[in-house]
């Protein structure tokens, strides 16, 4: 029973990782860039939701608020993601790979500090609003405690994953993304607007990260300005685990990582060591199995 409970916890946290990991993978698949600041996009999403709620619905816990604060989160995340793509990454597209990586670290710091300094009272952790149906008392099934937020998170992942799949495989813009990821130069010659496609990849990642931000807020009921760092790293691990550039892989990788982490917490030295195991896993995968679970888009740039 303990095992099942941990499995459930693992799936919950894993779904969050998966939602963020998709952002890494989509962007990487198109521009071979590890958007190190993606964890911060997730954090911005959470704060965007909090801000929307504080401004419009302070004190409301009804379910109809939820879609609107998700929209608020998305608005915040997507604008930040587009802005950083435009201002920081686009000019560096042909620079040595060190440059975008360091830029990403810079952006990461800017976003964290921006929130810490300019969001009211964000210097310490802020409490996130509750939504009755999602944050109400847990449901007991057998001996298991099923938290309502768990259901919400897993549902969110399913909806987002399906939506993304439909977008990429069934729309013109989605196919343009596939084309650019195969060969940007040829895609450009075929009339695909490469700049716009890359921006859309960033926006897509940000949309999912925003959902993850709201979900995380509802799950833990707190948000902090530095919540993106660890979450971003874990999600990156998930993306690599699944095979970076591969969207199904990111989802699978997230779930696997979440479960491993939960089980490690239970059986391998407790919560304080869970991150160590996640990183050990990351290193092992990167070194011995860089193509990941479902195979990565391998780009030989040598």
């Amino acid at each position: 029973m303990q095992f099942l409970q941990q499995l459930l916890n693992g799936l919950t946290i894993g779904s969050l990782y998966a939602l963020i990991a998709v952002g890494y993978t989509v962007v990487y698949g198109i521009v071979q860039l590890i958007n190190f600041a993606h964890g911060e996009v997730f954090m911005i999403g959470a704060f965007g939701a909090l801000a929307t709620w504080s401004l419009l619905f302070k004190g409301t816990t009804a379910i109809w608020v939820l879609p609107i604060i998700i929209l608020g989160a998305m608005l915040a995340s997507v604008s930040v993601a587009l802005l950083m793509e435009r201002i920081a990454y686009r000019p560096l597209r042909n620079a040595p790979r060190l440059a975008p990586l360091i830029t990403a670290i810079g952006i990461s710091v800017i976003l964290q500090e921006g929130v810490r300094l300019f969001y009211p009272e964000a210097k310490s952790s802020l409490s996130f609003p509750g939504i009755d149906i999602v944050t109400g008392p847990p449901i007991a099934i057998g001996g298991l405690d099923l938290r309502r937020s768990t259901i919400f998170i897993i549902l969110a992942l399913i909806v987002c994953a399906v939506g993304l799949w439909v977008f990429i495989n069934r729309t013109k813009q989605g196919r343009a993304m596939l084309a650019v990821s195969q060969d940007p130069d040829t895609a450009r010659l075929m009339g695909v607007n490469v700049d716009r496609t890359i921006a859309i990849a960033f926006a897509l990642g940000a949309l999912l990260a925003a959902v993850a931000g709201v979900a995380q807020g509802l799950h833990t009921r707190t948000v902090t300005f530095n919540m993106g760092f660890m979450a971003g790293l874990k999600a990156f691990t998930a993306a690599v685990l699944g095979g970076i550039g591969n969207i199904q892989g990111a989802v699978a990788g997230g779930l696997v990582l979440g479960v491993i982490e939960a089980l490690a917490t239970q059986y391998l030295g407790g919560a304080t060591w869970a991150n160590v195991w996640a990183f050990v896993l990351l290193i092992i995968v990167l070194v011995f199995w860089p193509q990941g679970l479902l195979g990565a888009k391998v780009v030989d740039r040598a």
């Binding site: 920081a88 000019p91 560096l92 620079a95 440059a99 975008p100 360091i102 830029t103 670290i105 810079g106 952006i107 990461s108 710091v109 800017i110 964290q112 500090e113 921006g114 300094l117």
Partner: peptide
Amino acid sequence: YRLLMFGILLVLMMR
């Protein structure tokens, strides 16, 4: 604003 400046500096230098 130390860290904020630091972040901005990194981005500007790379650019």
